Amino acid sequence: MDKISLVVPCYNEEAALPLFYKEADRVTREMDFCAFEFVFVDDGSKDGTLPILRELAQKDERVRFVSFSRNFGKEAGMLAGLEAATGDFVALMDADLQDPPALLPALYKAVTEEGYDCAATRRTTRDGEPPIRSFFARCFYKLINKISDADIVDGARDYRLMRRSMVEAILSMREYNRFSKGIFGWVGFKTKWVPFVNVERVAGETKWSFWKLFKYSLEGIVAFSTAPLAIASVLGFVLCVIAFIYICVILVKTLAFGDPVGGWPSLMCVVLFLGGIQLFCTGILGQYLAKTYLETKKRPSYLVRETEEGVK
């Protein structure tokens, strides 16, 4: 009998957890041809998430949990869950029921009967999402696929069922600055995309503001592409050429017609433009340098305070 591990990162999901467990329990019991374990990861929640996980672990022997010492972010939560999972297959899903557990039988069938290493989900609609957020999300997917080797499908969710071999490949990538959507695409393996209509949160509020998503997209670009560095180099070269041409024009104009009026407006425009470009390029370099600095520290991605076996 195959064993499937359900990895569920949680951050302040007190309201959604009981509903998620009820639905996941129903679906997994219908899939009686498989054994299951639930691996919940409490990402330093400040509400009643951890007490609920303790209660679930006491009444259901399939439930395990890992509780962090503080909030380390969803990426660390997914990594901890994958490391703790013991199943032949591992499924990643959110606790807010935006990743419907009812899709699990279809994902399992795709992996076991259709020859895929991974069955992943993608949203076909973005109903309920602000239009500006949807616009920037689509722009990000187009950009990241053009400038990197990571194959990221528009509307892709983290919700997926993977063979153990793919999980081990993902865990072999030990970088501190993780961008899982890019990692899933970079490791390859044969993936089937399962479309579904977007589902809104069953309870609670989203933890992803527009600003957090924007920073997360920058993480992905920096983690999987050096194109910004190339753009900065090309931009610097082009501006040097333009500056040289402009100097020649000024010299010819001054020698031929003199300089009756000081060119303060044009001078300020050039200075501000070049200064802005320099700061922009320095910022790009700073992003890569900051990531390198964090990688060289070799800090753990997360620290565990408690599991279903007790406080560490």
Rank of each mutant, 00 (worst) to 15 (best):
I132S: 12
A203V: 12
A156C: 08
W186G: 00
A169L: 03
N145H: 02
N145S: 08
I144D: 02
D158P: 12
F196S: 04
P130S: 03
R122C: 11
G155I: 08
L171R: 11
D149Q: 15
T206N: 10
K142W: 14
W193Y: 14
G128L: 08
L143H: 05
I183K: 05
D158C: 13
C118H: 00
K181S: 04
Y176D: 01
V197S: 03
P131D: 09
V202D: 06
L161G: 10
G155H: 08
S172P: 00
T206Q: 02
E200L: 12
R160P: 04
L161N: 03
V197P: 00
W211Q: 05
T121Q: 01
R160S: 13
S209C: 06
D151H: 11
K181Y: 03
W211R: 11
E113C: 10
Y176C: 04
F210D: 09
R164C: 04
K146W: 07
V167F: 00
S165N: 06
G185C: 14
F184M: 15
S172W: 00
L161Q: 04
A137E: 08
T206I: 10
E113G: 01
D127V: 14
V202E: 05
A203I: 03
N145Q: 07
G188K: 09
I144G: 01
S180V: 13
E168P: 06
T112P: 08
K192E: 10
S134I: 14
V167T: 05
G128D: 06
V197L: 04
S148D: 00
R123C: 14
F179Y: 15
G155E: 06
E129W: 15
T206A: 09
V199I: 13
G188C: 10
D158I: 15
C139V: 15
A119F: 00
Y116G: 13
N177G: 01
R164S: 09
D117T: 07
E175N: 12
G188D: 05
S172H: 11
D127F: 10
Y159Q: 12
S148G: 00
R138C: 10
P131L: 02
K181A: 12
D151I: 12
K207R: 14
A169D: 05
M173C: 08
I152V: 12
L171T: 07
E113S: 12
A150E: 07
G188S: 03
A169K: 09
K190M: 07
S148W: 00
R157Q: 07
R174W: 00
A169Q: 05
K207F: 09
L161C: 09
G204M: 06
R174L: 01
S165C: 05
D149V: 05
W193G: 03
R138V: 15
T124M: 09
P131N: 03
L171F: 00
E175F: 08
E113H: 13
D154W: 03
S180H: 14
S209E: 02
R201K: 15
K212E: 04
P131K: 09
W186H: 07
K190E: 11
Y141D: 10
R157K: 14
N145W: 06
I132D: 08
F184Q: 11
G155L: 09
R126L: 12
P195F: 10
L143K: 11
G185W: 00
F140W: 15
D154E: 13
G155W: 08
W186L: 15
E168Y: 01
V197N: 02
F135Q: 07
E175C: 04
S134A: 10
G182W: 06
R123W: 14
V202W: 11
E175V: 11
Y159I: 12
A150R: 09
W186V: 13
M162W: 02
F179W: 15
